[in-house]
Design a protein around this nucleic acid. Structure first.
Length: 520
RNA sequence: GGGCCGUUAGCUCAGCGGUAGAGCAUCUGACUUUUAAUCAGGGGGUCCCGGGUUCGAAUCCCGGACGGCUCACCA
């Protein structure tokens, strides 16, 4: 903003309400008040007043000496109800709760009354006075002194309908937050979720770490990265698509339990389930396998729901009547289903067991369920099975379900089952038709890992932009010996969607990526 | 990227070929315990942008911008 000349429009050219507010700000300054003072000596926030005094009746309040219920409370003005020239009710908000203040001309100095005359909806003020109940029973602060705290130069959204323009809600989240308690609730729940996760892992002896977000090789997942450049080193760098390979280096280094909660960046499409930057929890447990991680995951989700929402039954979706379409039951054991069985169960009538054996029959089945040009997945039966799964089963996995027994071909960082080298010891958790978590027993044989990297490089040479690079340094790390370990990634944004009943990932990200409005 | 839908006052919306409207907000006036306060009156518009059709376009057609949903891709 500072590099462009932003000429201030003449007052007469401003929108009417902005011009009025600027004029009021000038008047306030003329009355001797700073327009934007540095501090206010508050005794209570609005919520503190509600908490402390709401339980008390009119008589109980009056029984308390006035000097014991004298407060100084700051807040944003959300409503002004004038009762003639000499009395007025002003609603004050701290963002969370509201309380009203009763201003009488004869209880204020004439200077303070003049100040009141210059106030607009949205301004911040401090009210000093005595807590009481009106004859309508409303908890109020009878103002004795008024302090100006900050001017709002723009009008707030409609007090009744709020802000419904989705675009403005995302672009100007601060306005959304002012206007919508529900939006505020979503982000409070998200914060409590992250906080719960930290406490959960800390309590179990996991060490929270931070690993590079800028990487020379963007590894640990199949995705296209963002590219950037370090000037002093003249070095191309990638924003990470996953922390995985660094976290496992730490397991090699002797931290048997580590976790990280941080941003990943993937240069791919945007949708109701995808934002280019998203928050991922990854955690690694030495000496554990996929089965152990699944148990830990159930425990984490169940405890979080109980603590944050007070129930393990989560409402999801809305019917036409406005009732929840589903109740996600986190209290019951999560179903476990092999990818193969999921395809057969949800593709019943379209896909049969004998289709899954040969390349040709897999391709035919894929075509039948709507996968376009299945030959683009090459000769990989594993990729075709995964495609079938996504086409046929994914959207139906509403209740928490672990999909297990992934094809080894699409799991280049995972160990295979001891009894079957074609099946990875891997799982993904699906809830509400979304992939929420992905975990597996980590491949720790450096030679086998090198082999799988080479196969990935082969895929990349054939044009798969999401195939992995060969990471020499990671192979070297493994060659020092990594204990058996299982790892897992959990998408925090999607989990927050489940916990808040949000249909779009943009509703749980404060500032989702938006295309710039216009380049001037 | 494809399809469908949306963009009108600060906000929420109506108007869909014939002089641009309502509620809230704003301004003026009445009211010293109201709470979506009430009552009376006034002001406020690049109808997203650019073309076209028409005597006449917010409205119809074409192109574009931004957004939502959805399909494709992904986590």
């Amino acid at each position: 903003m500072s590099n462009e000349a932003a000429p201030q429009a003449p007052v007469q050219d401003l929108p009417e309400q902005v011009a009025n507010r600027r004029a009021n700000r000038d008047r306030i300054v003329a009355l001797g008040h700073p327009a934007y003072p540095n501090r206010y000596d508050a005794t209570h926030l609005v919520s503190d007043i509600v908490q402390a005094y709401a339980p008390l009746s009119h008589d109980e309040l009056e029984a308390i000496p006035e000097e014991k219920r004298r407060v100084r409370v700051p807040g944003r003005i959300l409503a002004i109800r004038r009762m003639g020239k000499k009395a007025v009710f002003v609603d004050l908000s701290d963002g969370r709760e509201k309380t009203q203040s009763y201003l009488r001309q004869d209880a204020l100095t004439s200077e303070d009354w003049q100040l009141f005359e210059c106030l607009d909806l949205g301004d911040h003020v401090g009210v000093s006075g005595v807590v009481f109940r009106t004859k309508m029973g409303e908890l109020s602060v009878r103002a004795e002194k008024l302090t100006f705290l900050a001017k709002s130069l723009r009008p707030l959204p409609d007090k009744w309908h709020g802000l419904t323009d989705v675009e403005v809600r995302y672009r100007q989240r601060y306005v959304d937050l002012i206007a919508s308690l529900e939006t505020r609730r979503v982000f409070e729940i998200r914060a409590r979720l992250v906080s719960h996760i930290r406490r959960f892992f800390d309590a179990r002896g996991f060490l929270e770490v931070e690993t590079p977000m800028m990487q020379v090789i963007a590894g640990g997942a199949a995705a296209r990265p963002f590219v950037t450049h370090h000037n002093a080193l003249d070095l191309p760098l990638y924003l990470r698509i996953a922390p995985e390979l660094f976290l496992k280096r730490l397991v090699v280094g002797g931290f048997p339990k580590v976790y990280e909660i941080n941003r990943n960046f993937r240069n791919e499409g945007i949708s109701t389930h995808h934002n280019p930057e998203f928050t991922m929890l990854e955690f690694y447990t030495a000496y554990a396998d996929a089965r152990d991680q699944m148990a830990l995951t159930e425990e984490l989700f169940r405890g979080a729901a109980q603590e944050i929402l007070g129930t393990t039954d989560l409402a999801w979706g809305k019917t036409e009547k406005g009732e929840p379409e589903h109740v996600l039951r986190f209290g019951e054991p999560f179903r476990r289903l092999s990818m193969r069985d999921a395809v057969l169960e949800y593709g019943a009538g379209r896909v049969a067991a004998e289709d899954l054996g040969e390349l040709a029959t897999l391709r035919a089945a894929a075509l039948r369920v709507g996968v376009e040009s299945p030959e683009r997945f090459g000769e990989s039966k594993g990729k075709l099975l995964a495609e079938l799964f996504e086409a046929v089963a994914e959207e139906h996995l509403v209740q928490p379900t672990f999909i297990v027994d992934f094809p080894a071909e699409i799991s280049p960082l995972a160990k295979t089952r001891p009894e079957n080298p074609e099946i990875a010891d891997r799982f993904e958790l699906y809830v509400a038709g979304m992939e929420i978590a992905n975990g597996f027993c980590e491949l720790n044989d450096p030679d086998e890992q090198a082999e799988k990297f080479r196969a990935q490089v082969g895929e990349r040479d054939k044009g798969d932009l999401e195939a992995m690079h060969f990471d020499d340094d990671y192979i070297e790390a493994l060659s020092y010996g990594m204990p058996p370990a299982a790892g897992e990634g959990i998408g925090i944004d999607r989990l927050a969607m489940l916990f808040t009943g949000s249909a779009s990932i943009r509703d749980v990200i404060l500032f989702p990526l938006m295309r710039p409005k216009a380049l001037r």
